[in-house]
Each structure stands twice: as structure tokens, then as C-alpha cells.
Amino acid sequence: MQPEKQRRIGIMVTSLMGAGTEKTILTLAEALVREGALVDLYVLRDHRDYTPQAGVNCIWLKTSSNREARIRLKQSISEKGKDYYDLFVISNAKYYPVVPVTNKVCSVHITPTAWITDGPRWKFWSRARKIRNLRKKFAARPVIALSGGIRNDLVNNLKVLPENVRQIVNPFDLKAIRTAAESDGNLPEGRYIVSIASLNVRKRHADTIRALGCMQNTEVSLVLVGRGEDENNLRALVNEMGLQERVIFWGWDGNPYRLLKNAALSVLASEAEGSPRALIESLLVGTPAVATDCPSGPSEILIDELAPFLVPVGDVSALATAMDRALCEYPKIPAWIEKRFDSAEVAKYYLALSEEGVSKR
């Protein structure tokens, strides 16, 4: 009997900055290594908030522009040959055409049309043009959707063929998360709510701050973990509402899990997501969570007994009510969440894709 061939898998990510897509890709790479694969992780930009575990072969291309990234990525992979990798995962669709690999897929981490920014009203054609461009980007390409909402957007709005879309959820290293959650480190004083997300307008931290001001519970504080261009506006809102003593701008933290574990509640008020890591991580460490019903992801997680803690986007009153309720009573977090998002199980789906690629040669 022939020994099973060790699979070679290539993965491309723009950088290892501290954001959701980058964490997802790195977790996937590490899980595939633990499952016995040889993994090359091509990183386009030299931004390193995350440190890969041993076994992941990081190829730092250190590019400074999209044009340079396309050229260097293509050259680096071409040297190995188109069938060197059994599977190549591309986390940004615009680089798909330049990856010279036979079996390759786009990994889609956001709900594409939900992230379209409309132009001025007089540019009435702006949204339609952007949708046409997205359709071209994903046309006739095999893609991996990280949630049902992403899959539906690709199929229904961008007209991607259903047979070209595989739905594979975000991977989470359960052991690493729980170990990190129990580690020592600075914590806020007293009982607190935590929101872990970049400080940009789409995350709607302003709604969370306003909801805090509307809550019946006036003893709990709000800790915002992240950084971004909207921080000054958020600080101004906090001052305007007189909440300086109750809102803490924590900044970037390399280990947000201990903050999640020790929080009374986590909140996600986004207007658009893909498959929200912070929401899932909260539940994995046993912390109650409230989220908005944005496209997409939260409505696939906060279901059944957790459904009352899913509120409409932008409804500050409903958000405040759900936050108050969650602090008083919250259902037992269902066991299926852990089973569904375990990185070891998720890695097996990618290994199956690599087997399909080998069989087609």
C-alpha cells in the first residue's frame, strides 16, 4: 500500500496586520500544518501584528504596490511550476489571475455587495458599475464563502454559478484561544462590556456608545478594543454624551481573548460583516454576545435561544435593550458552535479540495 502523499498547499494574504481576514488565513495555515500539510504562506506586505506558529513557511514578498505585488507573486510561484501546489487559496480576488497554479480558489471573507460605498447622488450609475465590476472579478472562478450570507450574495447578486461556490466556515484554534483567554495581562476595572473591532465607521461603534448611554444599567463600562480612523469622532461623541468615565479606548491588543473571557458581555454593532470572528470567539470562551443583523454572519450564529440578542442595524434602542437583557440573563451557549468552527475540522475541507485538484490532473 502506497503511503499517503503529503499535500502541498499555498495561501496568499495581503499582510499579517491585526484584522479578521488575516487572522482567519493564519489560523487556516496553522491548522493545515497540524493536519500534516506542507504550507507556504505568501505575504504581500511586511506588516506583522500576528506571528505564525512553527511549521508555516512564510514567504515575505515585501511589496509596496499592487502592481509590484502581482509581479512578484507570479514570479515566485512560477518558479515552482503550475502543479507544485495541490491547492492554492487566494484571499483577495484581484490576485487570482496572476497565480499560475492549476487548482486555485478565491476565499471570500466579506459580503461583497454589502461593502459597496455609494458615490454622490448624481452618480446614479455608481453602484451598478461597482456590481458589474464585482461580477467580472468573480465570474467563472471557484470561490470559498465563509458564511451562507456570503454564498447567497455571490450567487444571487453577483451571478456566480452555484457549483462554483463552496461554503466553508471560519477556522478557530479552540485550544489556543482558551489558553490565551486564561493568560495573565491587564484588564479593565469593574464589570465591563467589550467590543473588539477596528475603529471605522462600518463597525458602528457610535451606536454602541449611544446604546450604553440608553441602558438601564449605569454601572457597567464599555471597552473598545482596536484602532482606526474613526477614533477621534468616537472620542468626541463620548465627551458630548458625558460618558468619559464609562468608555475606555483600549487600543490594539495582541491577546484580546483574555478581555473577552473576563467581560460580562461582548457587542458587535456592524453594518456589514462576512463571518464575524469576534462574535464567534466570544461564544467560544463562554461570554454572552449581542450583535446586529447585518449582512452577513450574525444571523447564522445567534439563532434559536440566542435569537433575541440579534437586533436591527442602527436600532440603538433595541441594542440597549438587548445589552441590558444579556447582562441579566443569557441562555447556555450551544455546543454546536464549538464543533462547527473547530479549525481541525475546517482544515479537512481544504484538504478534500486539494485531493480533488490532484484527481483532476
Rank of each mutant, 00 (worst) to 15 (best):
L243K: 04
R166K: 12
V285A: 03
P331C: 08
G20C: 06
K104A: 03
A128E: 08
Y192L: 05
D173R: 14
K203V: 01
N233D: 10
D293Q: 04
V108T: 04
E189T: 15
A263S: 11
P112Q: 06
A278S: 14
A140W: 04
S198G: 13
F124A: 08
T102N: 14
L268M: 01
Q75W: 01
K80A: 08
R235G: 02
E22N: 07
D46C: 11
L302Y: 05
I77N: 10
V169G: 10
T21M: 09
K203Q: 03
A352G: 04
Y96W: 08
I71Y: 12
N170W: 09
E30P: 12
I248E: 15
I333F: 03
E182M: 12
W60M: 14
G20Y: 01
E245Q: 14
R178V: 11
L222T: 00
N164K: 15
V358N: 10
R151V: 03
G18F: 00
K130N: 13
I77W: 02
A139Q: 14
S64K: 15
A320K: 07
D207F: 02
S126L: 12
V160F: 10
Y50F: 15
A176Y: 09
V99T: 04
E4I: 05
L61V: 09
K130H: 13
R8T: 07
Q167R: 15
H109R: 02
N217Y: 09
V238C: 05
D342S: 09
Q167G: 12
D173V: 14
Y192H: 09
L154Q: 12
P188A: 08
N156E: 15
D315E: 13
